[in-house]
Design a binder for these strands. Sequence first.
DNA 1: GGATCCTTCTTCTTCTTC
Length: 351
Amino acid sequence: MFIRNHVTSVVAIMYQCTSLPMRNFSVCRYLSSPKRRSSYSLVDSERYSSLVKSVMSSKVSSQTPETLLAEDEHIYGRIVKAHIPPTVSEMREPKSLHPFLLHEKTEETDEAESAPPLRIILKRGQDRASIPSVTRVLQQTLSSEQIFYLERWKKKMIAELGEDGFKEYSQNLFRQGKRFHTALDDILMSDATQKDEYASDTLELPPEIQGYVESISHILEDVSAVRAIESTVQHDTLKYLGIVDCVARYRGVLCVIDWKTSEKPKPFLSNTYDNPIQVAAYAGALNNDGNYKYQVEHGLIVVAYKDGSPAHAHKLSSELMLQYWNIWLQRLEKFTELSSSHVSSAFSQKK
DNA sequence: GGATCCTTCTTCTTCTTC
């Protein structure tokens, strides 16, 4: 078990290395090197001896900040405040420094928690037509490694089931996932609105869903104060939207909850691929959406199984959420670059 | 009424030893 956990964490570090910007990559390389060496030890000290001497020398220069400024002015002229256009990342960066540790929105009251869950239906108007969704961004910015393994899996399945068989298999997976979500929405909504602890027991469940619901029954015992169900969230600054499965308290902590169905067991967070990024993206959007009068800092991914075996619940602390939020920003940036290059190439073709 | 959108899922592995 230890070895497995160890390997998982090493893989997690490797994954982070590949997902983070170059400066972080060098940090990872530094951490993974067998012997931590200072980069200064690599400097050809003989070659730079005069420079080192001049830097280390205590001799005071005849130049002072004032004389340097006067000299600069003489050479370059007076400083004129120039308008520097913001970079894409600056434009996209929200005004808030931390999307999960802000308390700008008014504090919650017990009354607000006892109100019926919010459900903002997605309406695609003209203003929203161009706004990408979380799913679309994640799908279109998969790594080449992810695409490779998915394609390989697909080929294997088609070889096994045939084209039509695979199509039917995929549709069935989607159908089960959708039915599970619908059933869960009914359960949560009926519990939240009827104030009856056993209200959901009277609900009729489709037979193929019963195992999944049984799988999450122990999780549902710890879920309370449901605030939102299948509700649209939109990041007003970063311009993206999505639909959160659920916002509720899990063991007393307010979380964005994502329900998943899976054929394979997913006991580790790393088994859930991009799901944590999805949850962080939803939470970040909710925290920047005026329709929600509260902040959510935590996340929860619940993986349910058809045979009724206990679901795996992966908690995402605010620290983890921030890490995944940063990965989400990178994916969003990549998506923007891809779509703008797509637009410009389409434009040049038209020309 | 039809089309489109947001979701719903799918990946990480192969061989040795006890």
